[in-house]
């Protein structure tokens, strides 16, 4: 039977790598399912304020975001803090309709659990944020969260 034993004689044994693509695909699917794409491109500069007593926002589908901060292209839009909803600048008056639209897109049962996350720059003046809060009260979106990051002490 010596005639079958030809080729890599004495050389190293080759490792079978045919299952490598499967493993990598599995990883790929895991990451595809478990992560979410960045939904919006920020038009405002946001340096999150710091806090220690934080709670996590569960269930991303229940959260709507309001961004407040100085515009990134301050030459074009000035330095006044602006409100961003979805992908565009907005005014306080737009918040009510935005909340309505967000609420419409949710399932009936989830609507009472809707949370609005206010992501504002640490240096914003409270005036803008108070206006936003009043608009949210008008829109009956009472569950809010002041977005902040963990202070590292």
């Amino acid at each position: 039977m010596a005639k079958f034993r030809k080729g890599n004689k004495g050389g190293q044994q080759k490792i079978n790598t045919s299952s490598l693509p499967d493993i990598v695909f599995m990883l790929l699917f895991f990451f595809m399912v478990s992560t979410s794409m960045k939904e919006v491109t920020l038009l405002v500069k946001i340096k999150s304020p710091e806090a220690t007593e934080l709670t996590k926002l569960e269930k991303k589908s229940l959260v709507s975001y309001i961004y407040i901060g100085e515009p990134l292209s301050s030459k074009k839009y000035g330095k006044e803090p602006r409100i961003q909803l979805n992908d565009a600048f907005a005014t306080v008056d737009d918040i009510e309709s935005y909340i309505m639209a967000e609420r419409e897109s949710m399932k009936e049962a989830d609507r009472p659990k809707m949370t609005v996350s206010i992501k504002a720059d640490a240096d914003t003046q409270m005036g803008t944020i108070t206006d936003v809060k009043q608009a949210l009260r008008k829109a009956q979106a009472l569950k809010i969260s002041y977005s902040a990051r963990k202070a590292n002490k």
């Binding site: 934080l54 996590k56 926002l57 009260r137 569950k143 809010i144 969260s145």
Partner: peptide
């Protein structure tokens, strides 16, 4: 995951 301080606003 997003973190923050949760609050309830008073209704008008």
């Amino acid at each position: 995951t997003d973190t923050g301080l949760s609050r309830m606003l008073p209704p008008i």
